[in-house]
């Protein structure tokens, strides 16, 4: 059933998920404000029905894929993943979703494709944070094709078996558990297969601080803070920091993707 993939993905050690309240009230979704509680306060303005995802670029079957059409073609399963923010805090989230690889296969990836570009919905009327140029809107992200096709990479549509809340990226978002949270782009409206590395929102804003890869790496500090440790959300005022794991603990599954690469340079 649903638990199977989750347990395989955890690599054995049992993860205790954060509470629904913790997961849905402490969010970075700057389109709804830069405060951690702004997304929960403001995201209800977002219209998510109807929703479709444009899949284009180097694919055999480009087009607008209705959300329901996507869901009817996918097998949903639960994945309990560690979630490590670049700001050095972390959570454990019981996502519901499907593998991105399955969606890409639905569209038919052409052999010339090397990267996948993603784009978040941009509706200034419904997203008060986009009235300020905190970032160059719309939010965009990207993965190398092998990262996108990796079985750990999912598109999440739910948390705790409920529809994913708007502040967490409804109706569907990317989840790449071995990368910093900002790579896991929310409320996706477009997926493009490309042959060159796509621009990414935080890299455009500050290339010195945010690289294209942004793999969780305790040995490569953010210029403004250490990435060696993290604080788990929910521990209260006297919560102890814990060591950050290489690739957020998913090294066994993903380290081979980066064999031979200098991770200090390709941060």
């Amino acid at each position: 059933g649903l638990g199977q993939g989750a347990r395989a993905a955890e690599g054995g050690d049992a993860l205790e998920p954060n509470s629904w309240d913790e997961i849905t009230s402490y969010n970075n979704y700057y389109e709804f404000g830069t405060g951690k509680e702004d997304p929960k306060r403001n995201a209800d303005q977002l219209t998510i029905e109807p929703w479709s995802v444009k899949i284009d670029g180097l694919v055999d079957r480009p087009g607008d894929y209705a959300f329901d059409e996507i869901l009817s073609n996918m097998t949903l399963e639960e994945r309990i993943y560690r979630f490590r923010c670049v700001e050095a805090w972390s959570m454990v989230v019981p996502w519901t979703g499907f593998e991105l690889a399955d969606l890409l296969e639905l569209a038919g990836v052409q052999s010339s494709a090397k990267y996948v570009a993603f784009e978040t919905v941009l509706r200034p009327d419904e997203m008060p944070g986009t009235r300020y140029n905190v970032l160059d809107w719309p939010y965009v992200e990207g993965l190398r094709l092998d990262e996108a096709m990796h079985p750990l990479t999912i598109m999440a549509t739910g948390i705790y078996d409920r529809d994913i809340p708007k502040q967490n990226g409804a109706p569907l978002r990317l989840v790449v558990p071995w990368k910093y949270g900002f790579k896991s782009i929310k409320s996706i409206v477009r997926i493009s297969l490309t042959d060159s590395e796509p621009p990414t929102a935080w890299n455009k804003a500050n290339p010195r601080e945010y690289g294209f890869y942004s793999n969780v790496n305790p040995e490569v500090d953010h210029p403004r803070w250490s990435q060696a440790t993290e604080r788990e959300i929910g521990g209260g005022l006297f919560s102890k920091r814990k060591p950050t794991l290489m690739f957020n603990g998913y090294g066994e599954e993903v380290a081979s993707l980066y064999a031979g690469m200098d991770l200090q340079k390709n941060f």
Binding site: S25, I233, L237
Partner: peptide
């Protein structure tokens, strides 16, 4: 603020908030 931090009034990550 300390009281709020101890009782949940500063949200789920009270350290940074404080």
């Amino acid at each position: 603020l300390l009281w709020q931090g101890l009782t949940g009034g500063l949200g789920v990550e009270p350290i940074k908030a404080l």
